[in-house]
Simulated scan of single mutants.
Amino acid sequence: MNALRRLEGVDWVRWGVLTLPSLFAIPSAPAWTWPLIALVAACSVPVLLLRTVRPPWLLPTVLVLVIAVTGALWVLRPGGFTSVSMFGATFFTLRSFGRLASAFAVAAATGTIVAWSITQHLGWLNALAILCVLIVMVLLAANRRSRVERLEQTELALARAQTAAEEHGRAAALAERARIARELHDVLAHSLAGLALNLQGARLMLVRDGASDDALAQVERAQKLASEGLSEARNAVAALREDVVPVERTVSDLLTAYRLDSGARADLVVEGEQRELDASVGATLVRAVQEALVNTRKHAAGAEVDVRLVFGADEVALTIADRQGRRPPDAPAPGYGLRGMSERVALLDGALESGPGEDGWRIQLTVPV
């Protein structure tokens, strides 16, 4: 269900432009026009109340209907100000929606202007002047859409540049870690291994020659310290080469790649106290996001994606939802990807739910930690 949002001044202005001219015409309008006025008021409600109207074709449809109805009122009652609503709805449609909705809006407004010019017996110059107002609106809307597209392209280019810079920095850090790991392995670890072998040989020689217990104890202690140092050096090398990345960072990188590939919005919300997770838990969460994004690319290309990661006291919850703008059909049978995801979650004693939601596919899993 779409959430209501806090109304801003621009919302009230837009609603007033679409509705108030028709409402002000009620006292002088005949009764047979009241249903048309009521239709205009009803169609303007989605513009005022809802943040995202679903399905996506509903809002442009009602705006085109507002253009047609207010245009009819303008032609039938030329003394009113319903033309303000018609031109306002036309501009809003041209500015906010695609070519198909804009074409219908321009056609409806042009037909209204032609009909009004004929009924008012205007000369062709006066009719052309009114049409010029519509042409100016088309140009202004086209300019705004072009500016928005340029801004989006700029933001996309900046995001790609930032991602490239992050990857470059990450690659440099990994290269430095690998260099340090090689130095530790080739110098320190080898030296400690050789030291441990020499001390073992020294202990055997002392035993053969009947050395005192104190001398044997000192050599054995030195051998133990060398062995422990060798173990610590190997652990340090393994840690440097492993480069553990937090789950939220990995998921964020996956969503960034999806945004760059599809151009659609993909957001991550993290709640709770973030902490390092067990390797199996982290791998399960990351694989779930990967599989969900693969399915979105396959079945709902270009859909927006919302991911919510919640760190609880005893569990971690992950929700992945794509916004297709419609309820998808039920899957006849779970695919291999979802089946494998379910098996991984079951091995961790977690729970997995997946299926169609109101406006897209939704996957939710919970894993104990």
Rank of each mutant, 00 (worst) to 15 (best):
F104D: 05
G169F: 12
V106I: 15
V133K: 02
L125T: 04
R77C: 11
W116G: 09
W116C: 08
L151N: 14
G111L: 07
G111I: 06
R145W: 02
A105Y: 01
S117I: 13
L131P: 04
F92W: 02
L140K: 02
G123S: 13
W124Q: 12
L63D: 06
L58R: 11
A127F: 02
N143H: 11
S102I: 02
T112C: 11
N126T: 07
W124I: 15
L59T: 12
V69D: 11
I67A: 04
I135H: 01
W116Q: 06
L128H: 03
T163V: 10
C132T: 09
E167W: 07
R77Y: 08
P55D: 08
R144K: 09
E149Q: 12
T110I: 04
R54F: 07
L58K: 13
V69S: 12
T70I: 09
V138N: 02
L58F: 14
L139A: 13
P60T: 10
Q120I: 08
F91S: 04
H121Y: 10
L76E: 15
G98E: 01
I135C: 00
L122H: 00
L122S: 00
L59F: 09
I135Q: 03
N126H: 05
Q162T: 13
G71S: 06
P55S: 12
A165P: 03
A127P: 05
L139T: 09
I118V: 15
E149T: 10
L125A: 09
T112H: 01
F81Q: 10
A72S: 13
A68M: 05
A164H: 08
R160A: 10
T110P: 03
G111R: 10
V148Y: 07
R54I: 04
I113Q: 00
L100C: 04
A159F: 00
T52I: 13
P55R: 15
L59R: 09
F87L: 11
S96G: 12
W57Y: 08
A161T: 15
T90C: 15
V75Y: 01
V136D: 07
W74M: 06
E167M: 14
V114H: 03
V136H: 06
I118P: 06
G169T: 13
R145V: 06
E155I: 09
L156T: 11
V138S: 06
A171V: 11
C132N: 08
L76I: 11
F91N: 02
V53R: 11
L139C: 09
G98S: 02
A105D: 03
T163Q: 14
G80W: 03
G79Q: 12
A68Y: 03
N143G: 13
G88A: 14
G169A: 15
W74H: 07
A107P: 00
A157V: 12
G111Q: 07
N143A: 12
F91W: 08
R147F: 02
T52M: 14
T90S: 15
W116E: 01
I113C: 04
Q153P: 05
P78C: 10
T52L: 15
P56G: 08
A103T: 05
L58H: 10
G98Q: 03
A141Y: 00
P55V: 13
A141D: 03
V53S: 10
S102H: 05
Q162E: 14
F91K: 02
E149H: 09
T119C: 08
L59W: 04
R99Y: 08
F97R: 04
Q153S: 12
L128K: 00
W74V: 02
